[in-house]
Computed example of a mutant assay.
Amino acid sequence: MQLDPQGVAPDDLSHAGSVVDKAIEYMIEQKIAPISVASALLGGALGLLARTMDDQAIGAVLRNALASVESGELREMRDQLPGGNAPV
């Protein structure tokens, strides 16, 4: 596994993201509520982190995610979706 030039993301991150996107698409097609999809994915991600990282590293990942929310980065992503910032 090779890291990106900034030393943050593994080179297979794009592939993993595509697989997750397909899983989300499938669950939405199955009429699973978006909050249930997101909760299941978050729970799975936290479980994987717990099995592969120490608490300090998990905290850093979560702080980075929170910083994305607080900076408006996720809002910008939502605003670029068809329909603007309407909730799913």
Rank of each mutant, 00 (worst) to 15 (best):
I35P: 02
A45Y: 13
D55S: 15
A57Y: 02
A33C: 12
M53V: 10
G43E: 10
L49I: 05
V69L: 06
A57W: 03
G59F: 04
S68C: 11
S71C: 01
L48N: 13
I35F: 09
S68F: 03
L48P: 01
R63P: 00
P34W: 05
E73F: 07
I58S: 00
L49E: 04
L42R: 13
A60I: 12
A65T: 09
A60M: 11
D55T: 15
Q56K: 09
S68G: 14
A50Y: 10
R75Q: 12
M77R: 13
A45G: 15
R75W: 10
A50G: 11
R63I: 07
A38Q: 00
V69C: 01
L41T: 04
S71I: 05
G44H: 13
M53E: 13
A65M: 12
A45I: 11
A65W: 03
L41I: 08
E70M: 05
S71H: 00
V69M: 01
A50S: 11
D55L: 15
A57G: 00
A60H: 12
G47D: 12
S36W: 03
V37Y: 02
A33V: 13
M77E: 11
E73P: 05
S68M: 10
M53D: 09
Q56E: 09
E76P: 02
V69F: 03
E76G: 06
S36I: 09
E70C: 02
E76V: 08
G44M: 12
A45T: 14
T52I: 00
D54E: 11
A50F: 10
